[in-house]
Structures are given as structure tokens and as C-alpha cells.
Design a protein around this nucleic acid. Structure first.
Lengths: 143, 143
DNA sequence: ATCCTTGCAAAGCCTTTGCACCTGG
DNA sequence: CCAGGTGCAAAGGCTTTGCAAGGAT
């Protein structure tokens, strides 16, 4: 069984358990999400889903994204100017570098930074529950 | 001279030097920004500015915010659902630790983290224009 | 005098919603 | 069966833009 098929099966199982009906449009969206590794926006998900279920509507994509967000299955990222982008909540933590010119989102992870964050919080008397680190930048031109 | 008046004078000086005309609406907006310590959105800035310049328009607020963002005077923060909120870039940089129980915001700064961020961006081929680091946590109970 | 800036209204994006028809369990 | 989900189209926020009039240098 492929990795994607496993993810898809888990999605459906968890949602069904939470009392969510697995309809044809939802199955299509879940399949897209299980196959994708990037940060698509609603329109991109919609267009990819069309090839699986040609009758799906953009409204349903939006409604399903809200549902999945509430269930903790995906995360919504808001960026200035453009539409929200969605990402599977599963998987290990990472942060984001956003290209100011293109809107591209690059993932990265630094254990050292995570450690420093913990240290700072501890010094201030806090335990971190979660955090958000976003770098906004431009492709370096020279050199 | 008050702190706000100083900030206002600096705003105008820097902008004028950059070839920006200091018009009545812009002066009103700069005054609002120099007096404010929170993160207002465009509509809030517009309404506060009305009491200084009753003829100002919302479009001008938006245009001015874009201008100030380009000049590096303010930062724009995007939130899912709601409007963008703006914050003065002036002063030394700091990050935020948000208390999940009380909503308290604690400012902190770590030069080491900043260095690591630059390093990561450089490795990915980018120059950081600005960043956003927010820790969400709870007061540590034991020990 | 020149060119930038403004106010207004209209348009543009992204997202949500009302409604009548479907459908999954 | 029937509560919940769907597609469609219309409405809703927030933001940008075209244009002619106004203002800063």
C-alpha cells in the first residue's frame, strides 16, 4: 500500500469517527490532500479535485477546508494579499520562508532555533504550546 | 518634546528625504501611527485619522500604508479572515510571547535566533526583509 | 508649472451564504 | 428515510484602481 493510500484511509477513518460523512466531493479533496506535499490554496485544490470529481464546486472546497481545519486535520496559513494556503497538520513541525515577490512558500526546520525558543520561554516563566516563525524575503540577487 | 512628537518628526524627515510628499492626509496618518502602540487595521486608522483630517478617505489610508510598508516604516500582518493589521517598524526589533490564558503579550529579543534565521535564509538563497516569530504558551506551573 | 496625490465610485479578489435539490449511512 | 451536504449564484468583506480635480515643491 502506498504512502498516499495510507494517509487517505486514515483521513477517512478519523473523520468518520468524528461523525463526518464521507461524500464524493470530500473523498476527492482528501485524496488531493493526501497526494500533495505543497501548500495549495482553495482554487488550486478545486482544480486538482476536478479531475477526480468533475462536478465538485469551489464552495464545497471552502466548506471542506473549514471543516478539516476545525477537526485539526489541516492548518490554514494567511498571507498578505493572496488567498489562504492549506497544509496537512500531520507530519513533523516546520517553519516557513515566504518569497515576497512570488508568494512561494519554502519549508525549513532548525532544531537550534527551537531550543533557543524553549530557553527564552523558560527564562520568562512559560512553557511553549506552539509557535509560529515566518521569514519574509527576496531571492538574493548578487554574489 | 514628547515621545510621539519626536516619532512624528522623524517619520516626516525620513519620508521627505526619500522624496515623499508630506500631504495633509499623510501627516494625519503619521500622527496616528506615532501615537498608537497597538496593531490597528486600515479601517481603524481611517476612523482615528478622521478626527484630525475630516476629509481623508479610506483609499488614501490604504495607499499610504502600502507606501509606508515599501519604505520600511511599518509592517503588515495578515490574519485569516480579517483585515491586515499594521505595526510601526521603528524602534528596535522584538518578537512576541503570547500568554494563551490571559492574552498578555511579552516582548523579547534574541540576537542568536536572528543570526540563525539569516543563516537559514542565506542557505536557501534568500535575503530576509522581515520576519515574524510568535511563541504561544502558558505560565509554567511546577518547579 | 509640473507631477504627484487625493476623493470618489466602481471594480476586483477571495470567501461565505441562501436556497432548493441530492445523498450517505 | 431524512439530517446533513451539495451546486449554483448572489452577496459580503477587504483592498485596489481609473479618473478628474486638487495640492506640494
Amino acid at each position: 500500500m502506498t504512502e498516499e493510500a495510507k494517509k487517505l484511509r486514515d483521513y477517512e477513518a478519523r473523520l468518520r469517527e468524528a461523525g463526518v460523512r464521507i461524500t464524493r466531493p470530500r473523498r476527492a479533496i482528501l485524496q488531493i490532500l493526501s497526494e500533495t506535499a505543497d501548500h495549495p490554496d482553495a482554487m488550486e485544490i478545486f482544480q486538482r479535485a476536478l479531475s477526480i470529481d468533475p462536478t465538485i464546486s469551489l464552495s464545497t472546497v471552502y466548506r471542506t477546508m473549514k471543516l478539516l481545519e476545525d477537526k485539526g486535520e489541516i492548518q490554514r496559513h494567511a498571507f498578505a494579499g493572496g488567498p489562504s494556503r492549506f497544509e496537512q497538520a500531520a507530519g513533523e513541525h516546520h517553519d516557513h520562508l515566504i518569497d515576497l515577490d512570488t508568494g512561494d512558500v519554502i519549508e525549513f526546520h532548525s532544531e537550534r532555533i527551537e531550543q533557543l525558543q524553549d530557553e527564552i520561554a523558560r527564562r520568562l516563566g512559560y512553557d511553549i504550546v506552539y509557535h509560529r516563525l515566518e521569514l519574509y524575503g527576496r531571492k538574493r540577487k548578487s554574489r
